[in-house]
Design a protein around this nucleic acid. Structure first.
Lengths: 353, 353
DNA sequence: GTGAAAGCGCTAACAG
DNA sequence: CTGTTAGCGCTTTCAC
């Protein structure tokens, strides 16, 4: 009943355990005939090398990891209102895309991928579990307590994804939030001739939203428009319902109605679209709406949402490449901080397409 | 430089390694004061338990696995023609959905998920790698040589996903291909009053396509329509280009033009849509088109594709539940064969919506 | 509640 | 090219 080991295979094929090991590790270092005997015995016994034992002995696992928060999914936050029309089988989450990117890249380098979403703390926390079983791993921003990361990163390569750099000496990859929003606002101003723009940020501590707001300000400054000190509105959370509420609030304000609503993310923008439709305000004729992220849902809604697309897939790939670099010698070159370019998706909600 | 171990922690906190181990495994079995000392020492040293060592000693990893083929993605097969409009960030692949389902379920049960797409064979094959590092795993149909599975399943629980049951004594989950296609055809016949239906299958050995064809036949029989012995056409592969070709071929045939084209999968149906548009044949007015699978792309094309949606997400969840059952005692109850229900998505391409 | 000792199954020098 | 010999870092009886 208990699984066969190298000893069983060695005995059955009349060689030593070292040779069995070699057959699996470096087949060419064993005479073909011997190798075949070993393989045959292994086959007969149903032998499968224990990854744990190998890992223990060789101090490497051949596995890379990814920790992501449960809530890392803007799309998942929509909560109760699961429009059957947009059932979640269609909605690709951030984490899904990162996983895909990492999996591909990992495979190219001969690694497998271990994924885990945040559980609860304690000594048996998520990170510990992952960290103990991989050669290196990526963490989506704010998934893991900084303190834990600090600790773990002393023992194996860690790369932080998205979000701001929380720990100086860790490798870190983010997207060009500021550039993206600046370009988006610039497009609205220059190509559509809009001048009264409103930016909706977040009350939550969101460095991403802040960076985007900075981009917005820069575009205003460039164009000689008034440069706001703070977002026109901060939503309590960056969800669809809050976007809906935000749109209502902004339109109900006294004074001239803005010509464009720039939301810090797509979820809110999609919510806003709904509010505007309800109020009979036409998009983009009466008002333009934009988001940020490039979630697939943005393409499904009407009008399709103009937004800034984040290259999540590439984020995952770069993460793996970085980890592999660290694992293959380059252990102590200075920490990398990489900013991936984003791209503007001009769709109907701003008057394009 | 080398990572601290239980010994280091034990020494620093003045206890034995057994106690250190207990703190991580069963905190309550250690006096609070002792525990805190240990935890503090661990923290100070940057101690992270080695998953490999734990796995070796305890004979369990707390990890479940998934092997999926590289080509498991109907959506990925479209190959060269990457319509920028449908960039892949929007396209959720089967494997992505299964991963998501498995990850969620695994997390609920306290497991992490190890994923790996097929690499190459050899002793160091994909399965071996995964199999050696998990407590049990799921395999997408035809990812892994039957022979290997046969072997491995002697040592740990394996569940096969989708496709037909290749190995009798393995747990197996599939979707209701026959039921789904039957219902789809019935809908065309009863609700839209169509009588000349053409089914496009595959030349490849595809039990799924065959099962769907059976459903088609049953619906025909039920309705008193002629029951074909074989699909009206078998495409060499179930891809978009082949679907395009198939539509052309079918329309070029002598005799009355069919009123509906039922494709064995969405990819082909999407290709067909393109062919029909090119020829100026209107869908659904001149001819109805249906697919099978429920890929997101089907919702983006115009007209939106009527299809049968497979619950991939649930497939993943059920797989995990099954594995966990096997891992918690129920080792030798007879193999399960589960068929998940599918659902009809009536959209514009059949005349609905 | 805590310690001592014996492996878990493999890799990694080092010999031969 | 193959065998010998130590561990890798932890869990697990079994004592105390």
């Amino acid at each position: 009943m208990s699984a066969p080991t190298v000893y069983d295979v060695a005995e059955r094929s009349g060689v030593s355990i070292a040779t069995v090991s070699r057959v699996y590790r470096n087949p060419d270092s064993v005479r073909a005939q011997t190798r075949d005997r070993v393989l045959e015995a292994a086959r007969a016994l149903g032998y499968v090398p224990s990854g744990n034992a190998r890992g223990l002995a060789s101090r490497r696992t051949g596995v890379l990891g990814l920790c992501f928060p449960d809530y890392a999914d803007p799309a998942a936050e929509s909560g109760g209102e699961s429009d059957d029309e947009y059932d979640d089988s269609a909605v690709m989450l951030y984490s899904d895309q990162i996983i895909r990117g990492m999996e591909r890249a990992a495979r190219r380098h001969g690694y497998a991928l271990l994924i885990a979403a945040s559980l609860e703390g304690g000594p048996e926390s998520l990170v510990a579990k992952v960290a103990g079983r991989v050669d290196g791993f990526a963490v989506l921003a704010r998934t893991v307590p900084t303190e834990d990361l600090e600790l773990i990163s002393r023992r194996l390569p860690v790369v932080m994804l998205a979000g701001p750099r929380e720990i100086d000496h860790l490798d870190h990859i983010e997207v060009a939030n500021t550039d993206g929003e600046r370009e988006l606002a610039r497009h609205l101003i220059r190509d559509h001739g809009l001048t009264r723009l409103a930016f909706v940020g977040s009350e939550e501590h969101s460095p991403d939203a802040e960076a985007r707001f900075r981009g917005f300000r820069e575009a205003c400054a460039e164009a000689g428009l008034p440069v706001p000190d703070a977002p026109d509105l901060r939503a309590p959370m960056m969800t669809q319902p809050e976007g809906e509420r935000a749109a209502d609030a902004l339109l109900d304000r006294a004074g001239e109605r803005p010509q464009a609503l720039l939301f810090a993310n797509d979820q809110m923008a999609v919510g806003a679209l709904r509010a505007l439709e309800r109020r009979g305000v036409r998009v983009p004729q009466d008002i333009a709406v934009t988001g940020f992220d490039g979630i697939p849902l943005g393409r499904l809604v009407r009008p399709a949402l103009t937004t800034v697309r984040q290259p999540m897939r590439r984020l995952g790939e770069e993460a793996v490449d970085l980890l592999v670099r660290r694992l293959t010698g380059d252990r102590d070159s200075p920490p990398v901080s990489m900013v991936l370019p984003v791209s503007l998706a001009r769709r109907a909600s701003c008057g394009c397409g």
